[in-house]
């Protein structure tokens, strides 16, 4: 198994005419938790969107390899099958599609891609129940349309639930901590910590140090004006918290 899970080299991307990423370099090894911090407009959400294959962005340069594959050549669904998961900053509401139907379709497609049989109805329900309990979600949510009418905290909890269901190799949390109270933050942190393993990695994109007190990162990066301008250990998060991003 390759030690380097994600290798981003010189990644440039734009939205329409606007260049947002201007040569991002990042190497994530298996088992590591990385934090990417940066001011508004630095390109943090663009980076997560480009990695997950959002059609609104154009990659204009650079390369991304994921578990040895050319990530940028894959469709969003293929990226998911390969083990990439993005927790959305703004989870999308899907009226009329229940969480249960949503997860059933997602798991079925994933298992099909891996050449596995579909889970039996009983096994699927047991898995749902287990993972809902894991994030402290009321089981009645399984019958509710995805994210419709959920509070901010419930939406983030539902993202972590989906993450646990899909059991990704690389999780990217895009500002999952924003707007959460301490209890919801702990749910997110517990979810991430429970899934830490020598094979799996996590990228936490955040403005604040708070989540990093619960999920201790191996590496911290500062993203500014579309580039990673500084990398270091946990101490970097303290410097940012105390002094802001101006000095970088």
């Amino acid at each position: 198994m390759q030690d380097i899970l994600l290798n981003i080299k010189g990644l440039c991307a734009s939205a329409g005419e606007k260049e947002i990423l201007r040569g991002v370099d990042l190497e994530v090894r298996r088992g590591e938790v990385h934090a990417i911090m940066g001011p508004n407009g630095a390109g943090k959400s663009t980076l997560s969107a480009v990695l997950s294959g959002k059609p609104d962005y154009t990659v204009t340069g650079g390369s991304v390899s994921f578990a040895g594959e050319d990530l940028l050549a894959l469709s969003p669904e293929q990226r998911s099958w390969a083990g990439l998961f993005l927790s959305f900053q703004y989870p999308v509401e899907i009226p009329g599609v229940t969480i249960s139907a949503f997860m059933k379709a997602a798991l079925a497609a994933r298992r099909k891609a891996a050449g596995l049989e579909e889970l039996s109805a009983a096994d699927f329900l047991a898995l749902m129940k287990e993972k809902m309990a894991f994030v402290g979600m009321n089981p009645s949510f399984s019958k509710r349309p995805v994210n419709v009418g959920f509070s901010g905290g419930e939406k983030k909890r539902a993202e972590i639930f989906q993450m646990a269901m899909l059991d990704p190799v690389l999780s990217i949390l895009d500002e999952t901590d924003s707007g959460l109270d301490v209890d919801a933050l702990k749910v997110v942190a517990d979810g991430v910590n429970a899934m830490r393993s020598p094979e799996k990695s996590t990228i936490i994109i955040t403005h604040y140090r708070k989540l990093l007190e619960y999920v201790r990162p191996d590496k911290v990066h500062v993203l500014k004006a579309g580039r990673i301008v500084r990398s270091g250990g946990e101490e970097l998060a303290d410097i940012i918290e105390n002094e802001g991003f101006d000095k970088f």
Binding site: E77, S80, M103, L166
Partner: peptide, 28 residues
């Protein structure tokens, strides 16, 4: 809705399946 479509695809639901799910709920 393109946002819904991308969200479903990011969870591994193939584009065509995602559209069928959306349309069934729309028609229901």
């Amino acid at each position: 809705n393109e946002e819904e479509l991308f969200y479903m695809r990011s969870r591994g639901i193939p584009e065509r399946e995602a559209k069928v799910l959306q349309l069934i709920s729309f028609l229901s």
